[in-house]
């Protein structure tokens, strides 16, 4: 158990008699980027907030960096030194500048990073003296991350970090996360975005209805690597479709039969999104 950054066994949580989390088991190794993927109301945020120590659980065992976040006692503050939390949304401290805020939060931590280098790392150098209320949504989110990592956390929680980002900002953000991973930070990420999970995560847990449907690397999620491709084309004025695990061979056969070009040929492999929708669709 102590070899995992996060260890959960049989976790449940009810609100008003209904299960928000209905028996979750998972282990996150040190140094891993682990993504939790799921629709709204799946139990992602509840699970993460239990791990962060914001919520209590009804049953099950939870260890985060070796300790139970609900029974830290005197250890509470030393435990919080070792984690970083980026919450879903925030709109605070609008009257302070980026620089003032990052420098202030740095003083909360024993092992704080240099505030100026964190401002640079999160791409906020040009905005450092701007009031927070004047930042764009993406810049504000980067500030949230700056405050999450200022204490050099061993474990970083990111709750839907790139909501509202433009594509360029999202890619820049991913690079930042990869850099943190390369420095040895363990990262637990919740996201709506499949491309984000695919780009960043070593492993993905798909969660729906408070339960884990599958945990695997993004490449093999839902048996994606084994899934059949769909070949569609037009032959004799009619549309044809075939599911196959040997699409190249099939296309060659059809091409030979039609004497060259195949009208309206498409070979479609399931995207992570198709697999995901299929997985959570099966739960409804």
């Amino acid at each position: 158990m102590s070899t995992s950054a996060i260890s959960i066994k049989g976790l449940t949580k009810k609100y008003d008699g209904k299960f928000a989390v209905a028996g979750i088991d998972l282990e996150v190794a040190y140094g891993e980027i682990f993504a939790i993927l799921g629709p709204n109301g799946a139990g992602k945020t509840t699970t993460v907030e239990i791990l962060e120590g914001y919520r209590s659980r009804d049953s099950g065992e939870v260890r985060v960096l070796g300790d139970d976040p609900q029974a830290l006692g005197e250890k509470k503050y030393s435990w919080r030194e070792r984690i970083g939390i980026v919450l879903q949304s925030s709109a605070d401290a609008g009257d302070l500048s980026v620089r003032e805020t990052v420098h202030h939060f740095a003083k909360y931590y024993e092992r704080a990073k240099d505030p100026e280098s964190v401002i640079a790392l999160t791409g906020l150098s040009e905005k450092a003296d701007d009031k927070i209320r004047n930042l764009s949504g993406g810049q504000r989110r980067r500030l949230d991350v700056a405050l999450g990592i200022i204490g050099s956390p061993e474990l970083l929680f990111l709750d839907e970090p790139t909501t509202g980002f433009d594509p360029e900002a999202r890619r820049a953000f991913w690079e930042l996360i990869k850099q943190l991973r390369d420095e040895g930070t363990t990262i637990l990420l919740t996201t709506h975005y499949l491309d984000e999970a695919e780009a960043l995560a070593d492993r993905v847990a798909v969660i729906a209805g408070g339960k884990i449907i599958e945990i695997s690397p993004p490449e093999t999620l839902g048996g994606r690597h084994l899934a059949q491709a769909r070949v569609t084309w037009v032959e004799g004025g009619k549309s044809h479709e075939r599911l196959t695990s040997t699409p190249t061979n099939d296309v060659a056969t059809i091409s030979a039969r039609l004497g060259g070009e195949i009208p309206e040929l498409q070979v479609i492999r399931p995207s992570l999104e198709d697999i995901y929708l299929q997985m959570i669709g099966g739960q409804e």
Partner: peptide
């Protein structure tokens, strides 16, 4: 207002007492 803005929740996650 600080509670609405998430200021308090953020502080709760830091080692500040």
């Amino acid at each position: 207002m600080e509670r609405d803005f998430g200021t308090l929740k953020r502080l709760r996650g830091t080692p500040m007492s």
